[in-house]
Amino acid sequence: MKKSERYKIIILVFLLLALPFIMSSPKAISESFKPLLNDGPNITILNYHKVDNMKIALSVSPEEFEQQMSYLKSEGYTTISPKDLMDFMEFDKELPDKPLLITFDDGYVDNYLNAYPVMKKYGFTGTIFIVTDFISSDERFLTWDQVKELKENGFYIGSHTMQHIPMTDVNDEILRNELLGSAAALDYHLGKDDYFIAYPTGAYNSHVEKIVKECGYRAAFTIQYGNVNKASNPYALERIPIFKSDKTFRSFCLRVNLTSFFQRMGLIRS
């Protein structure tokens, strides 16, 4: 067995033995692992979908969401935009000590009704990747007036394509139409801005990345688990998915605090 593999096993055993302590207090998580995590800038990007009371994995309740936002505030996180992130990656722009992107996929109306007031309360902004054809045409999703209000209050509005079609399932003509059409809708309703996209269903490959770049998008976000740093691929940016579970807050705290550590140990993508 290689030395690096033995080291990973030792770390895993340590984590298993430490879990009862780690799970006893969210504060204990960050304090216990701070020395292991502080070896360079890693940007936490959270990935939500719905904030409501539906009993499904993609729905975090408003109460759980507020608990999570309160925790992030108490831990000193500062929200940034996708443009801030790329200015850091491309031009070495300075970021706050604990930079955070809070992203939502699809553009559900509960993002405005339930998440937005909580985020305002804690001084956070977010990024919402919208399916442009669904806006103002399906009551489950945002209206353009709501989208405009969010943008006017510091939120970034990105693309999730026009129809939420998995981008690896279509030919280049349809792919370009989805990319350019959603960008045109954003331009028309919100004014021109840098383009960012989250891949629908997380489906992408190197060819999709190439077309996305050719269509003028500055970066793209995946559902691949991990944190982002300067070594990350701008067209395959990692995020931390946040789901509802039996112990949603405990899972949230573990993901926020240990993702970078797990990446460096090679336990997830590094």
Rank of each mutant, 00 (worst) to 15 (best):
F129R: 11
S137T: 15
R140G: 06
P200C: 11
T143D: 12
K148N: 14
E209C: 13
N171L: 10
T127V: 15
L186M: 03
P200R: 01
D138I: 05
D169N: 13
Y108G: 01
E173G: 05
F196N: 04
V170A: 14
V212T: 12
F196Q: 09
V212D: 06
G123R: 09
I174P: 07
L100D: 04
G126I: 05
A115I: 01
Y156Q: 07
A183E: 13
I135T: 03
K192W: 10
D145Y: 13
I130S: 08
G216Q: 10
D193F: 12
K192Y: 15
D138Y: 09
E149T: 09
T143Q: 13
G123W: 08
N114A: 00
Y199N: 03
V131F: 08
K148C: 12
F124R: 02
S206P: 04
C215E: 13
T168W: 07
C215S: 12
G123A: 04
T161P: 06
L180E: 12
K151C: 11
T143K: 11
I211F: 05
F196K: 04
A198R: 00
L101F: 07
D133V: 06
T132C: 07
A198E: 11
Y217Q: 04
D133L: 10
E173M: 06
K120T: 00
P117S: 08
L190Y: 07
K148G: 12
Y122S: 06
Y122R: 00
D145S: 13
Q163G: 14
D138H: 07
A183I: 03
F124S: 02
H164T: 05
S206R: 14
R140S: 13
D145M: 12
V118W: 09
G154M: 10
N111R: 07
N114C: 00
K120G: 02
F141S: 02
S159F: 12
I174C: 11
I157D: 10
T125K: 04
F196A: 00
A185Q: 14
V208D: 01
I102Y: 06
Y108I: 02
V109C: 14
T125Y: 07
D169F: 07
Y204V: 08
Y204G: 00
V170E: 13
A184C: 10
W144A: 02
L179M: 07
T103E: 05
V118C: 08
K148Y: 13
Y112H: 12
F196E: 06
H164L: 09
E214C: 02
N205P: 05
E209P: 05
L100G: 00
V131A: 12
L150M: 15
E178R: 01
H207G: 09
C215I: 06
H189Y: 15
H207F: 08
G158Q: 11
T132M: 10
Q163Y: 15
M167A: 04
D133I: 00
V170S: 12
F155S: 00
V109S: 14
S182L: 10
T161D: 04
I211A: 02
E214W: 06
Y156A: 10
A185V: 07
T125A: 08
D106N: 08
Y122A: 01
V212L: 09
